[in-house]
Write a protein that binds this DNA or RNA. Structure first.
Length: 497
RNA sequence: UCCUCCGUAGCUCAAUGGCAGAGCACUCGGCUGUUAACCGAGUGGUUGUUGGUUCGAAUCCAACCGGGGGAGCCA
């Protein structure tokens, strides 16, 4: 048995492929079977003159997603998907599939989500999962090569640690337990044992968010380092992101092509990233530069909309007299136009609100989604915003020695509107200040006994951050929604399949 | 919780108060290399649910159910 991605080593030889029928086409004496085996696609040609009646009969009965073993001679052929073809001599059928729901045409998101278990077989989803795999693998490699130890934080926790977000609760024998929203506090304990550690695991948030950036269950990589200050933390974050992106470019070129990802944008992801303080970010949002950029954006959307509507009118006039083939083309183009104009209309509704919010945002307020998008639009690579108002950040964040109102936190914002993919900072290491913060936030001191011990026995300056895996996958793949960045997404109203 | 858009054949959509339609999928037939192949024919409907307005409702109104996008919150 040979895998499709190894066919280059078997040109002009007999090979047996095992896989599933991705698509079929036929004429009187030829049947084209596109086979997928998990490693790629390969077109197999059955020629009636070259095979037995029995094999021809089997080939003509095959339907989409039927499982087969196919034997034949491998040839190199530029015309074909993947560059190779199999000239079939024998077929054995595991199962003829009946009525596979995901046809090679367009489908709506509700239908696809209901069939997520099958959707994963489609080409784009296949490519996304391969990129996700490369991201995970390169993250492990990055940290392992730097001497980080991977350790695991618990999923069950006994308290609503940070007191901010809404957690899922569950029964834990006679007690109540929560599903973890972050491994960070445990990461700090582990860093005091090993120096540099990272955790990689699922986290859970019961927030009722229905947006393209939110899941209720998602994966985070959280490094935590003893003796790192905020600057060292930021250097590590940008080095990590640059490493991962360059690895994906190197090893997932075909996948990025399938996803039609603009690689030039990714090639620019090299350290150092632009750094700006929260104060500078606020000034940028308030600036004329931002106003101008949004005005230009609005104008260009309007002219694009006009052009599309003109084209639509023309196509609709043509439709009546068009032949069938042309009608299909027109239908397809009209659907594209409708989708794009819907997006434009939404932008046009939103831009005035964005402008309003950005121009009027004041020091002390947290960024909204639109503010993050606007900030990143000014740059061509991810940016690092640091020095947030302490008020909007978590209790454990260390304050700036120069300015009590400022917390030593950093967010990395991805370009093209993908928003916050990394959040972190330097942790408070002074036991007295930390105890005061816990009290100020009305948190249960008893639950933090172990956390306070970390400041009692050899406290050191330390820092860390969390990378949201699905958001990173989204950004690197250039896809619209985190639900496509994880095999089985969990979000509001979605627990099946 | 709030704002906004949507729900028509298995799937994607059209029908803008007047006979519910097309493409794909499926079945049958045609085609000697197809690339979401193509060409011809056939099968396929309680227009999300309930109520209202009207001579007449997929279309207008109300409530509910389901979904998309967004706000808040966040990675």
């Amino acid at each position: 048995m040979v895998y499709i991605n190894e066919l280059a080593n078997h040109v002009d030889q007999q090979a047996e492929l095992k896989g599933w029928v991705y698509n079929t086409r036929s004429s009187k004496k030829l049947i084209f079977l596109v086979i997928r085996d998990g490693t790629g696609l390969c077109q197999c040609i059955v020629n009636k003159d070259d095979v037995s009646d029995e094999v021809w009969e089997k080939a003509s009965e095959l339907t989409q997603e039927s499982s087969v073993s196919i034997t034949g001679n491998v040839t190199a052929d530029e015309r074909s998907v993947g560059g190779h073809e199999l000239h079939v001599s024998d077929i054995s059928v595991f199962q003829v599939a009946d009525g596979y729901p995901i046809t090679p045409k367009e489908h709506g998101i509700e239908f696809l989500m209901e069939n997520r278990h099958l959707w994963l077989r489609s080409r784009r989803q296949w490519a996304i999962m391969r990129v996700r795999n490369e991201i995970i693998f390169s993250l492990h490699e990055f940290f392992q090569n730097k001497g980080f130890i991977q350790m695991d934080a618990p999923v069950f926790t006994g308290n609503a640690a940070e007191g901010t977000t809404t957690l899922f609760s569950t029964e834990y024998f006679e007690d109540q337990a929560y599903l973890t929203q972050s491994g960070q506090l445990y990461g700090e304990a582990m860093a005091m044992a090993h120096g540099k550690i990272y955790t990689f695991g699922p986290t859970f948030r019961a927030e009722k968010s229905k947006t393209r950036r939110h899941l209720t269950e998602f994966w985070m990589i959280e490094p935590e380092m003893a003796f790192y200050d905020l600057d060292m933390n930021m250097e590590l974050a940008e080095e990590m992101l640059a490493y991962v992106v360059q690895r994906v470019l190197k090893n997932c070129s075909e996948e990025l092509d399938i996803l039609e990802r603009n690689k030039e944008v990714l090639e620019k992801v090299q350290a150092p990233f632009p750094r700006l303080t929260y104060t500078e970010a606020i000034e940028l949002l308030n600036s004329d530069k931002t106003r101008q950029m949004l005005d230009e954006m609005e104008a260009s959307r309007k002219s694009e909309q006009e052009k599309l509507l003109e084209e639509k009118e023309k196509l609709e006039k043509e439709y009546g007299q068009a032949k069938k083939g042309r009608k299909v083309q027109i239908d397809k183009r009209l659907r594209e136009i409708n989708m794009r104009t819907d997006d434009i209309e939404e932008d046009l509704r939103n831009i005035p609100h964005w402008r309003e919010k950005a121009l009027n945002i004041k020091w002390g307020e947290d960024f909204g989604g639109s503010d993050e998008t606007i900030l990143t639009m000014h740059f061509d690579r991810p940016i690092m915003v640091h020095g947030y108002p302490a008020e909007v950040k978590a209790f454990y964040m260390k304050r700036d020695a120069q300015d009590e109102k400022v917390a030593l936190g950093v967010d990395v914002l991805a370009p093209e509107g993908y928003g916050e993919i990394v959040g972190g900072g330097q942790r408070e290491d002074d036991p007295d200040i930390l105890r005061k913060r816990i009290q100020e936030h009305d948190l249960p001191e008893d639950a933090f006994r172990w956390y306070m011990d970390l400041r009692k026995f050899g406290s050191v300056p330390h820092s860390g951050f969390g990378l949201g895996l699905e958001r990173a996958v989204c950004w690197i793949c250039g896809i619209k929604h985190v639900r496509e960045a994880i095999p089985f997404p969990r979000m509001m109203g979605r627990l099946y399949p």
